[in-house]
């Protein structure tokens, strides 16, 4: 899921490639965005979002994840291989454990 965002966006970041990492100010701006997203997440606890809450939380989580991995862990500026490892590990875990939990659920419906 996260991989598409990864592949689609890095255009402007890659412009300053070759280990050209963001400046301090840019890092701080990213952190501010992360803080706002976290506030949005927490707001689901205080306000009623109804059926939108679950997808909203998952999307917010994914965005935060990709932002930290992409900027703070420098995935956007490093070789693609590192990102492949990270997202392969993630995808592998999601697939295997979803299957496992499905086996429990499918069984329960017998």
């Amino acid at each position: 899921m996260a991989d598409t965002t990864q592949a689609g966006a890095p255009a402007e970041a890659e412009g300053g490639a070759d280990g050209h990492h963001p400046t301090q100010q840019e890092y701080i701006r990213i952190a501010v965005v992360l803080a706002i997203l976290t506030a949005l997440e927490v707001s689901t606890y205080y306000f009623e979002f109804g059926r939108a809450a679950l997808p909203l939380l998952i999307v917010l989580m994914a965005i935060k994840f990709v932002m930290v991995a992409g900027f703070f862990m420098h995935l956007r500026f490093d070789t693609k291989l590192f990102g492949r490892f990270l997202y392969t590990g993630l995808a592998w875990a999601v697939v295997l454990y979803t299957l496992t939990l499905l086996v429990f659920v499918v069984d329960a419906n017998q």
């Binding site: 490892f85 990270l86 590990g89 592998w92 875990a93």
Partner: peptide, 12 residues
């Protein structure tokens, strides 16, 4: 990075 990939299986 290789190690971190395996950590997903751990926490998963």
């Amino acid at each position: 990075w290789i190690f971190l990939a395996s950590e997903f299986l751990f926490f998963g």
